[in-house]
Design a protein around this nucleic acid. Sequence first.
DNA 1: GATATTATTGACACGTGTTATAAAAATAAT
DNA 2: ATTATTTTTATAACACGTGTCAATAATATC
Lengths: 213, 213
Amino acid sequence: MSRREQAKEENRARIRASAERIIRTEGIDKLTMRRLAEDAGVSLRTPYNLFGSKTDVLIALLEGAGFDPGDALALRDEQLVMEQLFATLDHIEAFFDSDEKFYREVYGGIMSSAHPDVRSTNVERVVAMCQELMTHAAAKNELQIDTNTRELGRYLGVQLLAVLGMWGAEFLSNQESIRQVRRAWCGILLQHCSNASHRAVDAAYQSVALTGS
Amino acid sequence: MSRREQAKEENRARIRASAERIIRTEGIDKLTMRRLAEDAGVSLRTPYNLFGSKTDVLIALLEGAGFDPGDALALRDEQLVMEQLFATLDHIEAFFDSDEKFYREVYGGIMSSAHPDVRSTNVERVVAMCQELMTHAAAKNELQIDTNTRELGRYLGVQLLAVLGMWGAEFLSNQESIRQVRRAWCGILLQHCSNASHRAVDAAYQSVALTGS
DNA sequence: GATATTATTGACACGTGTTATAAAAATAAT
DNA sequence: ATTATTTTTATAACACGTGTCAATAATATC
């Protein structure tokens, strides 16, 4: 890495650290570009040079923390695909719980920004991963043979992101969000899973069953 | 209505009309408070006096047009509750189709605004209506007796709004949005409907079935 | 009709994300 | 070491939503 690139990376790191500190100690409302620049000991222009926009700074924060639903969905090729799918939700919930306020504020800040391309990239990515998972599920006979895996994957991905949007907007708690997704996923998958995967889907469904009073 | 109230109402109407015209002809990005005031022939302060905020102006636009998912869910006490529930989705879709760009921009503008109370009012209202519908459904034996109607209603309402959020953010077309909700609703209702309502739920489900590659 | 209440106006200001511009500093290329 | 390129800086500015405040106009009350 050239000297120039190195210096830029150092600045990026300082800006990221400052942004995180401000959000953690004072809340995201206090994160303004001027305050961020001052705290990072850098001019107002520099965060724009190095990240592009305030939204991009927030995105870098999530990426740096490993927050990435798309990543969580990456095929791991263990056990049943359905088991992995639902395990992903546990993974995301654990992530939420590990630092609820911080992640929610950052995610909500990204989603409520007027950068449509950023968000749509996220959607397409998650949908693609879900479609891939469903393709594998079909290949492993975990789905009924007449299932439209493309549409099913799209449904699952959209569902996840729709609920994450509600989470980011503070309408749902961590647990509620995950339960909402799990219920929606189970609802459709119970209709399309094969005998091979039925046990896994049903187990997930039972864990969020809507019975009692 | 007093003379004063009348004059205010006239101003409100002019402002609403101007806002709608600007959004329709130039898009919501061009709707600024200064431009709105100028177009309506009113001072910059007046829209704030009469509506409260820019977000409130947008809300008034939707209300004036009769756009209200909560209203659409109001119990009509005809036929089966389940039939009404799904008919609501047709109603919303027709609404979308009647003026797609306009409604989406306005709804998206409201939802992406930083007025959390506005949005949460919307959520609570829709959830409450869904819960009421499910209570009635249970009373009419359209649900299995052990169904938690409160949680089920909450699930349905949250689901609708989560997807509407995606619609407002331009991730989903009108049709996709409605299908997404219908699938999610069917998925859970197929697990909880009684014999009395199964036919209705299954009909809705068949209309959005995910079969055929 | 005189007085009190209320609504609108105008001009200004604040804080925000973002951009413009030019100077200065740091680095790379020769 | 000199020159050329790239980055950062400083300062100002823009458009935006929103708020303040005094003045003014319209209406209501008596």
